[in-house]
C-alpha cells in the first residue's frame, strides 16, 4: 500500500506516495476509502467520465477526492479505477471505474488544505492529507 495513516488528535491524516501526479491522486483515493471503511458491492463495474480543473496540483487533489466523496454519497458508487485518467496541467479528465457502495463505516466531512504540499521524495511524489471527520 503506497499510503500510511499518520496520527492526528481529532481528525484523520494519511501520507501518500506515487511515481506521478495521477498515481498520487489514485492512491490518495484508495487511502481515503480505507480510512472510511468503505466496502463495494459485488456486481457490474460502472464507468464515468470526469473532467475537473483546479488552481494547482494540491487543489486538484482536493477537488478530485471531494468529487469521489460526493459521488459515493449521492450516486452510491465508489470509484477506484483511475488508470485511464489523464492529467494535463491542473486538469484531470477521462474515464474512471467503480462499483456500487455496499457500506461505509465513517464519513469524511471534508478534504482539507491543512499543510497540503505535494513534494518530490525518494519515493516519487509525496503528500500528507488531513481529512476532517
Amino acid at each position: 500500500m503506497p499510503f500510511e495513516e499518520i496520527s492526528h488528535t481529532a481528525d484523520w491524516s494519511i501520507r501518500v506516495w506515487a511515481d506521478d501526479l495521477r498515481g498520487l491522486l489514485a492512491e490518495s483515493a484508495q487511502g481515503m476509502w480505507m480510512l472510511t471503511g468503505t466496502e463495494q458491492a459485488e456486481g457490474p463495474r460502472v464507468s464515468r467520465e470526469i473532467s475537473l480543473e483546479a488552481y494547482d496540483a494540491e487543489s486538484l487533489l482536493v477537488v478530485f477526492l471531494e468529487e469521489l466523496l460526493y459521488l459515493s454519497e449521492f450516486e452510491k458508487i465508489v470509484f477506484d479505477g483511475f488508470s485511464d485518467l489523464v492529467i494535463e496541467g491542473e486538469k484531470i479528465s477521462g474515464i474512471m471505474e467503480g462499483s456500487a457502495l455496499r457500506s461505509m463505516e465513517k464519513e469524511i466531512k471534508a478534504v482539507t488544505f491543512h499543510n497540503l504540499a505535494i513534494h518530490e521524495s525518494e519515493r516519487g511524489l509525496e503528500v500528507e492529507i488531513v481529512f476532517d471527520v
Binding site: 488552481y55 487543489s59 477537488v63 471534508a110 482539507t112 491543512h114 499543510n115 476532517d132
Partner: peptide, 30 residues
Amino acid sequence: RGLGHQVCTDYVREFQSAVRRYDIQLPDRE
C-alpha cells in the same frame, strides 16, 4: 451536516485564489 461542510469546502477552495488577489501571506493554506 453536508450543507455546511460543502459551504466551507466551496469557499476554502475559492479563497485559495482570493488570497493572491488580496496579497495575503499565510503559513497554512487552510
